[in-house]
C-alpha cells in the first residue's frame, strides 16, 4: 500500500496562511496556539508545585505522602543499570504476553466469525476466563507452571486477550454486508474475504483493542511480579514498600506509568505508520 502524505499537508496549510494574513490577529493566534500546546504542561507543573509545597509547608512525612522532589531524588538514587534490569524484566513479559495475545486472538476471532458452532461453544468459555479475576488465579498459575517467564507471560495473556478478541470480532462484523455480497458474487475463496475485506475493515477496531491491551499487558506483568519474580518494576515497587521506602515505591510507580503511556502512544504511532487510512479523520 502506498499512501500519499499529501492530505495531511493540505490540512495544515490553511492555518499557516491564516497566520501570515494579518499580523495583529496572527500574533493573537500564535499565543492561542502556543497556549493550547503548553496548557497541559503548565497545569501539570503547577500541580507538582502545589504538591511539593503542601508536603513542605505542612511537614507531611514521606511515608504518608512523599513530595515530588523526594520521588525524583529516590529515582536518581537507584542506578540506571538497576532501572534497566527491572524495566527489561517487566517489558519483556508484557511485550511477550502482548504478542502471544495477538497471535491467539486474531486467528481465534476469525474462527469465531466463520463458525457459528465455535462462536456458540467457545465464546462463553472466553467470557468465563475474562470474568475470573486474574489476581486470584495468578498464584495457581505459578504453582502449575513454575516461577519462570512462561507463567508471567500466561498471566499477561489472560488479562490482554479478551479486549483483542472483542474488538477484532466487532470490527470484522461491522464490515458492510454489501462488500461481503460483492465477495460472494465474485465467488472468491473464503480466506480472501477474511484477509482482503474483513480484517482490513477491522483494523481501526483492532487498534483500539491493542491500545487497551498494551496497558493491560503492563498490569498483567506487574500482577505476575507480585506473585513471583526476582526482578521487574512491580517487584521493585513491592520491594520498596516492604522496606517502607515510599518515595522509591512512588518513583517506581511513576516510571511504570511513563512506560505504559509510551507503549500506548507507540501503538498509535504504529497505526499511523502502517495504516494511516484507519485513523479518524481530523476535520
Amino acid at each position: 500500500m502506498n499512501h500519499t502524505p499529501a492530505p495531511k499537508a493540505a490540512l495544515h496549510a490553511p492555518q499557516q496562511s491564516h497566520n501570515s494574513k494579518t499580523t495583529a490577529s496572527g500574533v493573537k493566534q500564535w499565543f492561542k496556539k502556543q497556549g493550547y500546546r503548553f496548557a497541559p504542561w503548565l497545569f501539570f507543573i503547577s500541580l507538582l508545585i502545589l504538591w511539593e509545597s503542601i508536603c513542605r509547608l505542612g511537614h507531611v512525612p514521606t511515608y504518608i505522602l512523599p513530595s515530588p522532589s523526594s520521588i525524583i531524588n529516590a529515582f536518581f538514587n537507584v542506578s540506571f543499570s538497576r532501572w534497566m534490569v527491572h524495566l527489561w524484566a517487566t517489558l519483556r513479559v508484557a511485550l511477550l504476553g502482548f504478542i502471544v495475545s495477538i497471535l491467539i486472538s486474531i486467528p481465534l476471532s476469525i474462527a469465531l466469525i466463520r463458525s457459528e458452532l465455535l462462536n456458540r461453544t467457545i465464546y462463553p468459555v472466553l467470557v468465563v476466563i475474562q470474568s475470573t479475576p486474574v489476581v486470584a488465579v495468578a498464584p495457581l498459575i505459578i504453582v502449575l507452571m513454575g516461577t519462570g517467564d512462561a507463567s508471567r507471560v500466561l498471566i499477561t495473556c489472560l488479562i490482554t486477550f479478551f479486549p483483542l478478541v472483542v474488538s477484532t470480532t466487532t470490527g470484522m462484523l461491522e464490515t458492510p454486508q454489501e462488500l461481503i455480497e460483492l465477495s460472494q458474487s465474485l465467488r472468491a475463496p473464503r480466506y480472501r474475504e477474511t484477509w482482503q475485506i474483513r480484517i482490513p475493515y477491522a483494523i481501526p477496531h483492532i487498534f483500539s483493542g491493542l491500545r487497551v491491551s498494551i496497558t493491560l499487558a503492563i498490569i498483567g506483568a506487574v500482577v505476575a511480579e507480585f506473585v513471583a519474580a526476582e526482578q521487574g518494576l512491580g517487584y521493585f515497587i513491592q520491594f520498596s514498600t516492604s522496606f517502607f521506602k515510599i518515595p522509591q515505591a512512588f518513583a517506581g510507580l511513576v516510571f511504570l506509568s511513563a512506560i505504559s503511556l509510551l507503549l500506548f502512544k507507540s501503538v498509535h504511532w504504529i497505526q499511523a505508520w502502517l495504516f494511516p487510512w484507519s485513523l479518524p479523520k481530523k476535520k
Partner: peptide
C-alpha cells in the same frame, strides 16, 4: 540460587511443587 517468596504458604507450596 535464591528465589523470593510471598509468604510462608507460598514458600511451602513452591517447595512442595518442586520449584
Amino acid at each position: 540460587k535464591v528465589a523470593t517468596g510471598r509468604g510462608s504458604t507460598d514458600a511451602i507450596t513452591k517447595i512442595a511443587t518442586g520449584q
